[in-house]
Design a protein around this nucleic acid. Structure first.
Lengths: 212, 212
DNA sequence: GTCTATACGGCGATAGAC
DNA sequence: GTCTATCGCCGTATAGAC
């Protein structure tokens, strides 16, 4: 491979981690379009050149941010599933609400829609997480999920459990919330019937960051 | 109101309509970030200044595009509901797939996440459409939707019917499609049970525009 | 390994000429 | 109704200081 004269900051740098903090706050508060070298630098109190030293392109900034975030998510999911091996439905429901809270995930999906590298990264981690989740579900409901009202394949139920919080969050992001409560109630009724255990859920807070 | 010195092209202009065509194609093919005065102008074969004459700011471009699109959607939805007054579930299911096809709706949702004017416009039309849809559903299932397997409020069912296609489309946009078929099958089974009529659905094509 | 200064072309937006 | 000139901000490549 060709020689690369360009120098890049170490991934273990404490400065680098602080910069990613600033990126997450910027994305949540103002959207990914506001993530500029100058804005990140101002937020972190450094020069734009230093941001560029750690992240040569904007893609590198977004990629590093999404990787740190998804690594933490996977850790949290794995631990929660190990801690409650008999309640995968409620664990996944609670996890998905937490994962979708705020505008961050929506911003990343939007980014993925027109940035090739971001799209590949999100697709990979999404499929990976879905595999972990499906394994947990199939260990618990080997022959399909027996809801009192009918039958649903583990894959279909998983997609609903994890997708509904994300979709409702997406709509809330633009201020739409009609009938949201009805869907949540209906789904939690189903969950309670399929997995009649004590409540371990801890629902998301209602607030979001102000927009520009 | 104060005097506005800025001059703007007429809304009835044929040129304006051609420009909106170019905007839709640009957004679908490359994402909203590629919608620039220069890019739209090049696509339509005019000068960037002319684009700016019709749309003083980028917000005006996006607003005009979303309005033309949603006007057409509302017309199509109303006609379909009138044409099949006894099959609102299948009409809404089919409509929602068509509405969500391609990357356009995702791009607009993303835009709404950090553009105040876009967010307001999307929220308004979404609530308006949902009202029309809910009315149709309640006319047909006045006392709730009696699925063979249980009960679901009209609002909850509506949100699922219209939300699932959008969410699955969102995931397909970044290349994720695990278990999508299972959800579609399960839902169409429910629909068939709640509204046992002939098939009027016509599912979306599988292709999307290439990304950069 | 960490950090900075500078320069380039493309961008949205405005004011105003034809 | 159409088009130009100009301004300030953007990503980012480069060259180099500590």
């Amino acid at each position: 491979m060709a020689a690369s004269p360009r120098r890049v900051g170490a991934e273990t740098s404490k400065t680098r981690d602080v910069l990613i903090d600033s990126v997450e706050r910027l994305m949540s508060e103002e959207g990914y379009a506001s993530v500029t070298y100058r804005a990140v630098a101002a937020k972190a109190g450094v020069t734009p050149s230093l941001v560029q030293y750690y992240f040569p392109t904007l893609d590198d900034i977004f990629l590093a941010t999404i990787r740190r975030r998804t690594d933490r998510n996977v850790t949290r999911l794995t631990e929660a599933l190990e801690e409650h091996p008999d309640d995968p439905l409620r664990v996944l429901w609670q996890y998905s609400w937490a994962e979708a809270t705020g505008a961050l995930i929506t911003e990343f999906m939007a980014l993925g829609n027109h940035r090739k590298s971001i799209r590949a990264e999100i697709a990979e981690v999404t499929e990976k997480v879905r595999r972990v989740q499906l394994d947990a579900l199939e260990r618990r409901f080997a022959k399909g999920v027996h809801l009192p009202e009918g039958e649903l394949s583990p894959g279909a139920l998983l997609l609903l459990i994890t997708g509904i919080p994300k979709f409702l969050n997406l709509e809330e992001g633009i201020g739409v919330k009609t009938a949201h409560g009805e869907v949540v109630e209906a789904f939690e009724r189903y969950l309670g019937a399929a997995e009649p255990r004590r409540n371990i859920r801890k629902r998301k807070p209602p607030s979001r960051s102000p927009r520009r």
